[in-house]
Design a protein around this nucleic acid. Structure first.
Lengths: 337, 337
DNA sequence: ATATATTTCCGAAACGTTTCGGATAAAGGT
DNA sequence: ACCTTTATCCGAAACGTTTCGGAAATATAT
């Protein structure tokens, strides 16, 4: 493995000069610079980022803390799509990604700060953790630059990127109301998720705006899981036959709701309209195709990386960013007279 | 940031002793060891892996070269599932993952060896590259330990994990033949993929075994894309009306084939049976649900990580591993009399 | 000619570890 | 009493960079 010293020896200069030449400083003569570059190429030199990181105290590396990488989360590719977005932005900006795992017990032995400091990452992007995750407190307490995904909390060193979930939910409900629905139930995720909190808020505000009935028993949690959603929906509709539309906080749960409707002999959308959230791939393939709120998930990822890197490089930037949502109308909703 | 020196000072010993205590050597007295551990904890010490990597010439890091992380590949979660498997195995074995990107032009400026050497990764796992990718040659030429996914090539320093694609294809064709199909066409992927080569081989061998017609014009490439598959299938079936079953080298392409059949007014499975490959999530949701060949994708990933780490730690292991496939019968295939 | 500025280079320290080779002291053997 | 082993510790070098402060050589101004 050739080093900067080898180059210095061959080129007949000092390591200082080699370093400065390679890094484009201007206090090295053009001719010697060319010579050094040539030698470096000839010796097939690659810089050692470990050594560099050691002295510069920067690693040009971003730590990724993702909790949705277990077998269970494979159905929706939200996690993956965010990852792709991060990856794309980070790599264009010259940063590498290092993947921390948060679900195996093995890794949980280490604290967030340990994870980051051991690898000397410059900053971190955190996705998929719940409100009560101990990591979250640590993130907010530490001064490691960090971007949260879908958790709208901000400190001096942590920002976030998310969508306007209140607005997204409102779009869904507005759509249902325009179709003439009046008795709208909601299948929410779980208490640990900020997005659940906000989508519920949008749901409530929009109903109130139109002075439609708001009933506590029409709102149930489906844990963001298809099976759970199916069973709670079954119970919900059995006990509240007057419900004519359902707003689900995720498409995966909407799929469960769909199954429940089938079992109950309720036709979607003729007997009951359903709108989901996320616009997962499945949404356009299931039967009927789901009306849903789409998010630019890839962009969430790339914005997160961009935001973090701006923070790292002290470029002025707002510490929070929002990406758009849009209503996608398919066949699971229809007019109700 | 507290270092080993700080600990040494506070504990009143040398850095050598601290290092050896922290790493569990036996030439340090139990009492001083406890003391050092206590001080380390109190000072909230985290080891600097950069420094360690520099002197040990090992980073406990695995490089990940993945090509399926662009916007286009989101439909099938094969890539992601492999990633999850790798992540799980690697993290239990104490390795971190660093993500290299191979599709942005930015990263393509660097060669495979540069990528690996700069970050001083101990080894690499490579996924989704084509037979003619220049990286592949480099991987085989270099002596960096590497595991290829779905590319059955082996050298002193590179192994692979894959499924028996010949066998998988045979299972599919056997199923169709047992159902009474005789005129079986194939929608393959593209020439750049080993899996295509092998699935074709399985298809041909099985047909030959039963002395069924093998026609070159019944075999077309769908580029592993839904749209391409739809158009080639359309053309194929229009020109060869006698075809009564289709073997698709991926579920995504099977979905395309499904659409083509719809447009042609051919009912699946009554007019024509279709079997896919991969068992993607969509396969069980589309209409009709797809009969397909399932792979334990998660396991492909975890085996890859396990294999690589065995190689890195000089544990004896076969350089190639196979994971199982199984036929999953759903509603896109039926008897043909 | 001298004084000053500019260009081009370099020595050495620093980053935080690990590890080789040996030192010291205590324990054991004869 | 002396020699040998064992347990415990440490100094210093090494890993491959970057960078501070300054030196030498050359150009420019007076």
């Amino acid at each position: 493995m050739t080093t900067i010293k080898d180059i210095a020896k061959v080129a007949g200069v000092s390591v200082t000069t080699v370093s400065r030449a390679l890094n484009g400083y201007f206090d090295v003569n053009e001719k010697t610079k060319q010579k050094i570059l040539a030698v470096a190429k000839e010796l097939n030199y690659s810089p050692n980022t470990l050594a560099r990181g050691l002295v510069m105290k920067k690693s040009k590396t971003i730590g990724l803390l993702v909790s949705g990488m277990s077998k269970e989360n494979l159905k929706d590719n939200f996690t993956f799509e965010v990852l792709c977005g991060i990856n794309e932005a980070a790599s264009t900006l010259g940063y590498d990604l290092i993947l921390f795992n948060t679900n195996t017990t093995k890794q949980r032995e280490k604290t967030y700060t340990q994870l980051c400091r051991e690898r000397r990452v410059d900053g971190a992007i955190v996705q998929g953790i719940k409100k009560d995750d101990p990591y979250l407190k640590e993130i907010l307490d530490s001064d490691i630059p960090c971007v949260l995904i879908d958790i709208p909390i901000q400190t001096d060193s942590v920002g976030y990127v998310t969508t306007d979930n209140v607005l997204g939910a409102k779009k869904a409900i507005e759509h249902l109301i325009q179709l003439g629905h009046k008795n709208i139930g909601m299948i929410n995720g779980h208490e640990g998720a900020y997005v659940s909190e906000e989508r519920l808020k949008g749901y409530l505000e929009k109903l109130t705006e139109y002075q439609l009935p708001v009933k506590k028993e029409w709102i149930v949690d489906g844990a963001f899981e298809e099976e759970t959603s199916e069973s709670v929906t079954y119970k919900l509709l059995e006990e509240n036959n007057e419900i004519d539309a359902l707003f689900c906080a995720s498409d995966v749960m909407a799929l469960g709701a769909l199954k429940a409707c089938n079992k109950l002999g309720k036709a979607v959308p003729d007997d009951i309209s359903i709108v989901g959230y996320d616009n997962i791939t499945l949404a356009s393939y299931c039967l009927p195709p789901l009306t849903t709120i789409g998010q630019e998930v890839y962009k969430i990822g790339s914005e997160a990386a961009d935001l973090l890197i701006n923070m790292l490089e002290d470029k002025p930037t707002d510490l929070c960013r929002y990406v758009d949502t849009n209503l996608i109308i398919r066949d699971s909703t229809t007019k109700n007279y």
